[in-house]
Design a protein around this nucleic acid. Sequence first.
RNA 1: GUCCCCAUGGCGCAGUGGAUAGCGCGUUUGGUUGCGGACCAAAAGGCCGGAGGUUCGAGUCCUCCUGGGGACACCA
Length: 592
Amino acid sequence: MRDLLTQHICAAIEAAQAAGDLPALELPAFTLAHPRPEMGDYAASIAMQLARPAKLAPQVIAERIAGQLRANPDFAKIAQAEVAGGFINLRLLPQTLTNVVDDVTRAGEAWGNIDLGHGQKAQVEHGSANPTGYATIGTGRNVITGDTLANALQAAGYDVHREWYVNDAGSQVRVFGASIFAHYAQALGVDEALPVKGYAGDDVVSIAQAIAQKDGRKYLDMPREEAQRALGRMGIDAVMDNIRGTMARLNIRFDNFFSEKSLWTSGLAGEMIEMLSEKGKIVTYEGAQWFTEDGSAIRKGQGRKKTDDEYAEEETPDKDEKGKKLPVQAVVIRSANVITNPEERGTYFASDLPYAWNKVYLRGFNPAIYVWGEDHQADVERVLAGARALGLPDGAVRIVIYRFITLLRSGQEVRMGKRKGNAILVDDVLDDIGSDAFRYVMLSRSVDTKFAFDLDVLKEQSDKNPVYYVQYGHARICSIFARAAERRPQDVPGYEQSALVYEHPSEHALIRKLLELPEVVELVTQTLQPHHLTGYAQSLATAFSKFYDDCPVIREDVPADVMRARLKLAHAARIALAKSLHLMGMTAPERM
RNA sequence: GUCCCCAUGGCGCAGUGGAUAGCGCGUUUGGUUGCGGACCAAAAGGCCGGAGGUUCGAGUCCUCCUGGGGACACCA
């Protein structure tokens, strides 16, 4: 509807130009806003934008555009145009609103879908936590954000692929294997120290114990390295199995689990480095191989751990004398004197390059969306630089950074850590408040907002979670239909065909909310901010509740034709509520 | 030192450069002879951290400042 009205306005401007009422000007891009209800349903501020270039008063321009709109029979059939100040306010006619209800009921679950993607392949890669422990609420925020974005993209007409990147390469995996080995040995009564920076969480311990129980002392008799490697692999499998189960509880499925290791075993990582090398973007420095965005020599002082004080003392290493940002440089292959094992010398960035290539070039995903925690914010620049260096199209790689969740312990915020074993697991939260409430909590804040997680408070407040308000609206509508069939079965048939024009303000308000669903899908797809959905669902539920209060549907004194019209509207509201909930990955219950 | 994010009613947060800044929770007061009260209505509560700037128009964009969080490894 919004797009249709925008087109009408564009046509009106062209008509005014053709008539000589407006000078021929390039039109700036503009969208219609939702003004306060008493002003109208949509508002265009285009006249004010045109005032200066057209050298005319906004009011005059607005009047001329509005005049053309009114003269267009296609427009006059659906809406009225009024000029207020420099604004052109559009108000849909009751008949237009009434027709929307038909559109919604005809579309069913497809209501809200738009064709922004034209079937283009898109990918959302999310989750992707190190497979060294069960899913924590940090992972929870990641997957709920990613899954909801994927749902929105799908509704926006993209062919969406959901992927989890398994970090099964690198030294962390070895530390994890050694940790499992230690816990395993301890479970069998053998004194074995946990490695430095080893994993001490309950999840890791229980995996090791399960192996001990099943396989006995088998791995104690093997060479230690081999045992640790084997246990590491088994540990990763066990963790991923558990995570898959957790994802299922969250109503999240993945199309693929992509192995980081495969980028190396397939040789793609090597090819990428070779390709960049030919372009002069890989250089050797102090025994390591570096990516350098513009082929410039590696700046000294990089690649060394620093304290905040050392950074403070440093002479602005990221900028040159003129304050211009220096090109990206990052290690791809570590030197032998840092990491002895050749298999572990590739950095994360060395995997990021072939992975981006694989996603965009080999598999054709555009956009390929990455959902990352803020600990990766510094990697954004280098991955984008890498994608450019590889010649991938602009905008194909899009990275969403979400802020961390902190834990509240006796009023103090604490950073979670898998290694520290102080993380709250998604499974535990689901046991307490369930998937729908958890998803709603996670989705209700913008990805740019960090929040402190207090499980006790959450449990206490879970019955006030807004998701129930939305679901309650849905359940009430289902109840109306059940009662209608019982009480006035003779009046139910034919509600789909009702042609009564809606008159009540609460009916109109509800229909306007139905019209917003496709707009919200577009907004989420463009901003990659899924929290807009929660706000919409809430306001939709409010509009329904008001309608419910103001407009009895099946009460005895309601005439049959009014009842049928309101049943149809209630049905349309149910469709939109269910669609909103489904986009957010939640259930739409018929009873609560 | 450099970069990123945040600062909006008591609390938690929305707010595609547009008109009188909203929502939830909390507080106060009302409402239904009941289609599910997990509801609805009304009230109180705001110098949108500060100072400049761009613009016809700034909570929103730019610069600087203050306060808070995070990042800046051959770590993962």
